[in-house]
């Protein structure tokens, strides 16, 4: 493990916990895309099925379990406990337009044509675009709460750090996973516009609002 890998994981964890605490403390999921959170729950579920087949380390297992538990807790808060605050009218991204093509792609391009590997590949492809319902919602409402932007920042930062980790592992460990790297590049590119707004607005104390 290297510093980029570890800080990537911690950034990912920070994002998940920030979102969960935001919803819990404010007793509201206003401005959060429930569909996006359903996609992330699906991403973790399909990727971490390897918990049942292989053991890597205590760190690996516990982080995977924490990610899964937090993502399901978030979905529960949005669709059950604080359903009244869920802004469904603005959460109108058609997720089938992501899930179906990504499902097809994972059958066509993978490392091994086995159920677990296809599901894991599916999760990597899906994760790369799973933020789109949330970004779509922000573009529809034209604004985001500052705490929501912190969530998005850490979620985007995590994959960027993982890309540096991939370069590191290529040079120092000789391993390279083209699928993970290409998906990681796509994922990071999707955040670039947001990163720009975050740095130029939110970090200067302004609320993130888009021009009408």
């Amino acid at each position: 493990m290297n510093i980029f890998w570890l800080t990537g994981d911690l950034s990912h964890l920070a994002a998940i916990v920030i979102l969960l605490l935001k919803i819990w403390k404010t007793r509201s999921c206003a401005g959060i895309s429930g569909k996006g959170q359903l996609l992330f729950a699906l991403v973790f579920t399909t990727r971490y099925l390897d918990l049942l087949t292989s053991f890597i380390s205590l760190y690996n297992t516990s982080m995977k379990l924490i990610y899964i538990a937090c993502s399901y807790a978030t979905v529960y808060l949005i669709y059950m406990k604080f359903k009244a605050t869920y802004d469904g009218n603005h959460d109108t991204f058609r997720v089938e337009f992501l899930v179906v093509p990504v499902g097809g792609l994972s059958f066509l391009i993978n490392h091994d044509f086995s159920p677990l590997e296809i599901l894991c590949t599916f999760s990597i492809y899906l994760e790369s675009v799973a933020i789109l319902p949330q970004l779509f919602m922000i573009s529809k409402t034209g604004e985001a709460e500052t705490i929501t932007t912190h969530y998005l920042f850490f979620l985007g930062l995590y994959r960027a750090l993982y890309l540096v980790n991939s370069i590191w592992r290529f040079y120092f460990e000789g391993c390279f996973d083209l699928i993970a790297v290409v998906a990681g590049v796509v994922q990071t590119i999707l955040y670039c516009d947001f990163f720009y707004l975050y740095i130029t607005k939110v970090l200067k104390g302004k609320k993130l609002s888009l021009p009408a």
Partner: peptide, 10 residues
């Protein structure tokens, strides 16, 4: 070949 990275990475 299995995607090694995606199983030890999160």
């Amino acid at each position: 070949k299995k995607s090694v990275l995606t199983h030890d990475e999160l």
